[in-house]
Simulated assay, not measured.
Amino acid sequence: MKSEPDELSIHDLQRLGHARWDGVRNYQARNFLRSMQVGELFFFYHSSCPQPGIAGIGRIAASAYPDPTALEPGSHYFDAKASAEKNPWSAVDVEFVAAFPGVLSLALLRSQLALSDMALLQKGSRLSVMPVSAEQWQAILALSSEGR
């Protein structure tokens, strides 16, 4: 799951303990978000920043529910077509699990053969929520334990 660190970083989540993950405005990413179950772990990816990469791990604390930011006119994520009765967007609650000693950079991730098929690393992939296979999960955990 991707977030811009100036909006919500792994360290913000660590300080808060839990937060709402909202603002997903792509149907495919929304569907991935909706499929996540309470207790499921995810990699927290910092995007649109000087050093994009995987910064830590979070956990789904509450399953998908209608994203309230879609109904807030002052929100960057406001959707004029959404209503309380018909809100196509979803949010989940997440909680902090771990921050990596350093961000696993996009360059490092791309250098790993075990991650070559990872959705995040494909050209044109801009989804904010995407699946990670069990093998990819283990490869990334191995990188994080090496202190990279």
Rank of each mutant, 00 (worst) to 15 (best):
I60H: 02
M36N: 00
V132N: 00
Q136M: 00
A62K: 09
L33M: 14
V92N: 05
V129Q: 00
A91Y: 01
D22Q: 14
Y45E: 06
M36F: 10
P73H: 12
T69F: 09
F44Q: 01
A139N: 08
R15V: 10
E135H: 02
D22I: 07
D67M: 08
Q122K: 15
P101T: 10
L141V: 02
I60Q: 03
V94M: 02
L16Y: 03
H18K: 13
L41K: 05
S83D: 10
S144R: 07
G147A: 08
S125Q: 12
E85Q: 14
G56K: 09
L16M: 14
L113A: 15
G39Y: 08
R59K: 07
V129F: 02
F96K: 05
P131F: 00
V103E: 08
R20S: 11
F96R: 03
G74R: 15
S35N: 11
F100R: 04
Q37W: 12
E7L: 15
I54W: 01
R20M: 13
T69V: 13
D117M: 04
H18E: 14
A64K: 02
V92H: 00
R59D: 01
L109T: 03
G102W: 12
L13T: 00
E40W: 10
G53W: 11
R110E: 03
A61N: 14
R25A: 11
G56H: 03
L16D: 05
S145L: 14
A119M: 08
R148S: 12
M36R: 08
Q112H: 07
D6N: 15
A62I: 03
K86H: 14
M1C: 06
A98P: 05
S90Q: 08
F78D: 13
V129G: 07
H46S: 08
S125I: 04
V24F: 02
P73W: 06
S63M: 08
D93F: 05
M130D: 00
H11S: 11
I57G: 04
E72C: 14
P101C: 08
S90R: 10
E4W: 07
R15I: 09
F42G: 00
H18G: 13
S128L: 09
I54Y: 05
D93H: 07
